[in-house]
């Protein structure tokens, strides 16, 4: 069984693109449309990597990251955040919330796979 990744994004396009790209690279994908939905899914099943957008309704990405880091089973799980600009402020906020890495949207598919491989074998 391949490693399992969750993609959290309120944009269906983005979710589908992330899922498609990573499925092509042999990963299993789960989708969630915001932080709240992701948290519900993640409390039920463990994934090997979380990829999350920051700006989302109901629960944003930073809150999701903080919540996950508070859960024992996600203390060390790699979390990759998707940012839209090379926004240094957001990146720092993400890091201090506990994000493992970041990738700037729009991503190049190869680059996404490369970064995912850096975080999750």
């Amino acid at each position: 069984m391949g490693k399992k990744i969750i993609t959290v994004d309120d944009s269906k396009t983005m979710r589908e693109m992330v899922a498609f790209t990573l499925k092509s690279a042999g990963y299993d994908l789960v989708e969630a449309e915001d932080g709240q939905a992701a948290l519900t899914v993640l409390q039920k099943e463990k994934v090997d990597l979380v990829i999350t957008d920051l700006n989302m309704p109901n629960m944003d990405g930073l809150t999701l990251i903080r919540n996950l880091r508070g859960l024992p089973e996600y203390k060390f799980t790699p979390i990759l955040m998707l940012t839209t600009e090379g926004d240094a402020g957001k990146k720092e906020e993400g890091k201090s919330a506990g994000a493992s890495g970041w990738i700037v949207k729009p991503f190049n598919p190869e680059k996404l796979v490369q970064v995912v491989q850096r975080l999750c074998a």
Binding site: R69, K75, F76, T77, P78, I79, K95, G98, A99, S100, G101, Q114, Q117, R118, L119, C120, A121
Partner: peptide, 14 residues
Amino acid sequence: LFTTGNEPVLLFGE
């Protein structure tokens, strides 16, 4: 290091 969710062995892989 581990609290950031990063894993050295993967970096060496890259």
